[in-house]
Simulated scan of single mutants.
Amino acid sequence: MHTTEQFASAAGRVRFSLPVRVYYEDTDAAGVVYYANYLRFCERARTECLREIGFEQKALLAGQRIAFVVRSVQADYLSPGLLDDALHVVSHVDSLGGASLVFRQKIVRGGDLLFEGRFVIACVNLDKKRPVPLPTEVRNKLEELVQA
């Protein structure tokens, strides 16, 4: 089972690190991580980050009918991940908008940077299929991370 560790970076910003092992299913025929799987690893890390600060996406869906959806992605693939690598997905909340937030994420293997991404995440009401403001309790927790 994967766990999320919270730690402070050298700059003082709160970041979350999620360990990920590369399995055969994550790779192409050459044993290299298939590019779309970096996005899956980042999605997992964002979910665990929210869980770590006290919010389950399933509960937000059931209680408030809201979901967090990816609005845009900027991705830089810098070096290949390989079968059986032990990776870490390091995430931090970069900024908050009215109905959105920006995650900066990187995937590392030891001291090697494999991937960097910027993800704009929108808060959406599922019934109306429209953006809605971040719930106050979620915003307050996320603001703590941005200001840390």
Rank of each mutant, 00 (worst) to 15 (best):
M1L: 11
H2M: 11
Q6L: 14
Q6F: 08
F7I: 01
A8S: 14
S9V: 02
A11G: 12
V14D: 10
V14G: 04
F16Q: 00
F16D: 00
S17A: 15
P19D: 03
P19Y: 00
V22F: 05
Y23F: 13
Y24D: 05
E25A: 13
D26P: 02
T27F: 04
T27Q: 03
T27P: 08
T27N: 03
A29N: 09
A29W: 09
A29H: 12
A30F: 08
A30V: 06
V32R: 09
V32M: 10
V33D: 00
Y34M: 04
Y35F: 15
N37D: 01
Y38T: 01
Y38K: 04
L39K: 01
R40H: 14
R40Y: 11
F41I: 07
F41G: 07
E43M: 06
E43F: 03
T47E: 03
E48S: 09
E48P: 01
C49G: 00
E52Q: 15
I53L: 08
I53A: 03
I53T: 02
G54D: 01
G54P: 01
G54F: 00
F55V: 04
F55S: 07
E56N: 09
E56A: 13
E56D: 12
K58H: 13
K58E: 14
A59T: 15
L61D: 11
G63E: 15
Q64K: 14
I66V: 15
A67Y: 06
A67W: 05
R71D: 10
R71A: 15
Q74G: 09
D76G: 10
Y77V: 11
Y77E: 10
L78W: 00
P80H: 05
P80V: 04
G81C: 05
L82G: 03
L83F: 12
D84I: 02
D84Y: 10
D85W: 03
A86Q: 15
L87D: 03
H88I: 08
V90K: 01
V90H: 00
S91A: 12
S91T: 14
H92Y: 11
H92I: 02
V93T: 06
D94I: 03
L96Y: 02
G97I: 02
G98N: 14
G98S: 14
A99S: 14
S100N: 12
S100K: 03
L101G: 11
L101H: 12
V102L: 13
F103W: 09
R104A: 12
K106Q: 15
V108C: 08
V108S: 05
L113F: 02
L114Q: 03
L114Y: 00
L114T: 02
L114P: 06
E116F: 01
E116Q: 14
G117W: 00
R118G: 11
R118F: 10
R118K: 14
R118I: 15
C123W: 08
C123E: 01
K129D: 10
P131D: 06
P133D: 04
L134R: 05
L134P: 01
L134D: 01
L134T: 01
L134C: 05
P135Q: 09
V138M: 13
N140W: 07
K141T: 02
L142V: 10
L142S: 07
L142N: 10
E144F: 08
E144D: 13
E144M: 15
L145A: 05
V146F: 06
A148H: 12
A148M: 06
